[in-house]
Write a protein that binds this DNA or RNA. Structure first.
Lengths: 160, 160
DNA sequence: CTTTGTACAAGATATTATTCTGTAAATACT
DNA sequence: AGTATTTACAGAATAATATCTTGTACAAAG
């Protein structure tokens, strides 16, 4: 049984998706050359990929250092209770904190893993003490500070 | 002492960056309206932000489920040795594995944290056994499977 | 076979990006 | 203060690009 909601797309669509993941600013004319079609059907395919929800959105990727963001971390968070009410309350609070750029519910030792980005260690400490720790559903937290990032690919490996 | 390599940008640039992080496909005309300038200086500002490296790149964000990627995980990896040679060797191997979309060197219990995405649990297991575990510098691994993602923001909080 | 639908190319049109020119304001220099 | 220089901007002209339209070939369905 295959529960995946995979939407139909062919080899050409796959190539479009690969290119657009790596470079969203490519012109339709160039994209059409790269995939070997004329501009019209190329654009039609891109539009379909957008409408079907395969392509969700387009984003500019910034250099964190150059905008004054020097500290990135992963934080493992355990909640005091694992019931739905607590999880919902936690999520609601987390959503209001801009510095928390990711929040995933996970298996394993912790309940959640967060990705947090801040100006510096001082700002990070303040954020953790005054905002994250203050969420009443939070039991324990364990921070892992990112020393350096070796890979940060925006290109997902599309299965054959 | 401020070691950050922050590049100069004003309130208008900040607004541009916020908008472009959330929607890279906005037209220059619309962007100029949103920030209250005419198209010409708006485009000039965007170009400068690109040239200065503040804007690194533009990417299409796909729906993992719809392209058949059902399993995402974080993996804590400990290496057998912490010297530079081992770390370099590890990184070289990791870079060849498409399913590893992120790799960060971190403080704390593990040495590295990876973000991995695969078709399903079977494919994930195969990947871990045949590729990641096979890297000879790897000592131990601990997987955290993502059950659900509550937040995955592509918008960094730009400090004032 | 015939029909229907789909994907495509080529060209026409519309939209958008980009360049150009001139002006006003801010900054630096004397 | 007064002058020169630079910078940022608006508006208009131009260039590039996206988008639409039309017709054709091909594949699938009947």
């Amino acid at each position: 049984m295959d529960n995946s909601v995979r939407v139909k797309f062919d080899k050409i669509d796959r190539k479009i998706l690969e290119i657009l993941q790596g470079n969203a600013k490519i012109t339709n004319a160039q994209l059409s050359k790269d995939i070997g079609l004329s501009p019209a059907p190329t654009l039609e395919r891109v539009k379909k990929l957008e409408q079907s929800g395969i392509i969700r959105s387009y984003h500019a990727k910034l250099d964190p250092e150059k905008i004054g963001l020097g500290v990135s971390t992963f934080v493992l968070v355990t909640l005091i209770g694992h019931n739905k009410a607590n999880i919902d309350a936690f999520m609601t609070e987390i959503n209001t904190i801009q510095e928390v750029i990711e929040c995933h519910h996970i298996t394993g030792s912790g309940d959640f893993i967060l990705k947090i980005i801040a100006k510096d260690i001082t700002a990070y400490q303040k954020l953790m003490l005054e905002q994250v720790s203050e969420i009443k559903e939070v039991d324990s937290m364990q921070s892992m500070v990112i020393l350096s990032t070796f890979k940060d690919s925006k290109v997902l490996p599309i299965p054959a």
